[in-house]
Amino acid sequence: MTHLTVDKPPRSRPAPAARPGGLRRFSASSPSWLFAAPALLVYAAVVLYPAAAGVVYAFTDWSGIGQDMSFVGAANFLALLDDEQAMGSIGNTLLLTLAIVAVQNGVGLLLALGVHARLRSRAVLRVVFFSPVVVSPVMVAFLWKYVYNPDPSAGLNGLLGLRIDWLGDPSVALWSIAGMVVWQYAGYSMVIFLAGLEGVPKELHEAAMIDGAGTFQRFRYVTWPMLAPAVTINLMLSTIGGLKLFDQVFAATNGGPGYATETLSTVLYKQAFVFGKFGYSTAIALVLALFVAAVSLVQISYLRSREVAS
């Protein structure tokens, strides 16, 4: 998270004094590409090459083991259209993403506004709200399996006096998973919103107050437009996170009950490692990657235009 603050030094700061032979001369002319070569080489070896190789597998029937493999053209992609389970998982993935994006950012914004206020305990609260982010998602899922215990006297049911089968009822399970994702990542959205809030100049608020604007009006016409970059980042990160959600689903329900919480990521995992259909699984992964890229591009171009307008 540190880069958020490192990237944005306060505007009023005077330019750093030139240091002889220091960083200034180093950054004055743009550095040669050669400097990036070692990093690019590593990136190509561990990211670009495997990704390109993966694309090739998407057109084969490789089982993941052994040498037997033949090219099957677009058969894997056509099979995807006919695959009831994969298609159902797309619906689940979209629903989950929508729920997570809306609630996580809503809660994140409220938390940010809350801990931005001049509360005595705000430093502590910031840490408390952010702390779930640092826990591994699989651990969070295991912990929430206890919270979601269907026993009326245990966990969330015991606390709220409910009798809900959180992870076992197919019509509830998807939302239960969204709930634990929001619990974990609302703090993450909060931190990004908070960085945006810190960047809103006090003078604007003072001017608005002098003009007679109330709390809500100041939020609507001063804070909210200034938050646009934070909104862009948050919406993008949570959308990408939602679309490729895997760990929490895998650990909490493994896609069940039935197929009720199956996401594209769990389906492609199962195709590869449970059914031994690596080629088909890679095809699903490719579709997922393209889909995420397309959604992100549309989203970022829309949100960026909104930032300019404001």
């Binding site: 076992g168 009822d169 197919p170 896609g255 069940g256 009950p257 039935g258 197929y259 009720a260």
Partner: peptide, 15 residues
């Protein structure tokens, strides 16, 4: 795995 899933669906009345 299909057997696992359909049993869960049967138990939840979804199938």
């Amino acid at each position: 795995p299909v057997h696992f899933a359909v049993v869960q669906e049967l138990l939840s009345g979804k199938a």
